[in-house]
């Protein structure tokens, strides 16, 4: 059985549907990413899989155990890092780690090799209270605490939120090493650029999976021509492009507009069209899709279908 099996999970809070018929599996040694904005239902799913919440319908298995009936067995074998920093702020780095080691019936020394790479970075601060660490250090400590008992599955709920860019890269490097040790990792993030670090990703929005594949496959299967349009008049350009017959979608993207079209066009054709409509164009360039493009396109399609 795969490390995690999610089978038609449904969960709502009153009228609000948090998870709508979710199904996927995560294999041993796989790094699986849940990509979606805040409120997509990621944390709810984590809590159901870590046996903290009950789903309204559907079943789920973690390390071969049913999440409701065998919750005690699961709690011994998983590591969980909640979305909010949840260690004892008034306890030092070392005290936190040894406390969590003890409650899982182990010691720091016994599993030191597993956390060594991360812990060496924390070691200079080991007498500092956890509440006084920087954001990146806090997350590294939380990861250490979630790992100290050698879990078979690791649940990381937005581990890189509020962490600086350098620490984020380091964090993903660590996850890669852990994956190689055979640990299945389910990780969520609102940052689309982190998606490419996963083996497979599920794009989720409003409790539904929009797409599930490896990031490379997803990009390869994007299927529509994509252009980056650079213009000083972003708002007017958006209006013009959205009314053009060839446009599938036009979305603001930093200082550019990402344009997908229904038919294959030359960059110069688009440029000419826009200049005819009186828009100053600096540059039009065909580009490869990013996960963010895919997400925005899918979510737009999902929105229009709902209406």
């Amino acid at each position: 059985m795969p490390a995690i099996v999610v089978d038609h999970i449904h969960k709502s809070y009153g009228d609000v549907i948090a998870l709508n018929d979710l199904s996927f599996t995560v294999e041993d040694g796989e790094l699986f990413g849940l990509i979606g904005p805040d409120g997509a239902g990621k944390s709810t799913l984590f809590r159901i899989l870590t046996t903290l919440l009950l789903a309204d319908s559907g079943t789920a298995y973690v390390v071969g155990h049913h999440v409701v009936e065998a919750y005690k067995a699961i709690r011994k074998k998983v590591g969980y890092m909640p979305g909010r920093f949840s260690l004892y702020q008034d306890l030092s780095v070392e005290e936190n780690l040894s406390f969590f080691a003890t409650i899982f019936g182990t010691t720091i020394r016994e599993n030191y090799d597993l956390v060594k790479d991360i812990y060496v970075q924390l070691e200079p601060f080991k007498t500092r209270p956890a509440g006084k660490l920087s954001g990146g250090m806090k997350q590294k400590l939380a990861l250490c605490c979630a790992l100290i008992h050698k879990p078979e599955v690791l649940f990381l709920d937005e581990p890189t939120t509020g962490v600086d860019a350098v620490s984020r890269v380091e964090f993903w490097d660590m996850l890669k090493k852990l994956k190689q040790k055979g640990i299945a990792i389910l990780v969520s993030t609102p940052y689309m650029d982190e998606a490419t670090r996963c083996d497979r990703i599920a794009l989720i929005q409003k409790g539904k999976i929009l797409s599930l594949d490896s990031p490379d496959e997803m990009v390869a299967n994007f299927g529509k021509p994509l252009y980056a349009v650079k213009t000083p008049q972003i708002y007017q350009a958006l209006m013009v492009l959205r009314n053009a017959g060839f446009t599938h979608s036009a979305l603001p993207f930093g200082e550019c507009i990402h344009l997908t079209t229904n038919l294959s066009l030359n960059a110069s054709e688009i440029r000419d069209y826009m200049e005819q409509k009186g828009i100053a164009v600096e540059e039009v360039q065909p580009i490869d899709a990013s996960v963010e493009d895919i997400f925005l396109n899918l979510s737009q399609t999902a929105e229009s279908q709902r209406q």
Binding site: T51, F85, S86, L87
Partner: peptide
């Protein structure tokens, strides 16, 4: 309130 109960619950305690 601080969320540490969440971690304590997801443990064999």
């Amino acid at each position: 309130e601080l969320g540490t109960m969440e971690i304590l619950l997801v443990s064999p305690l």
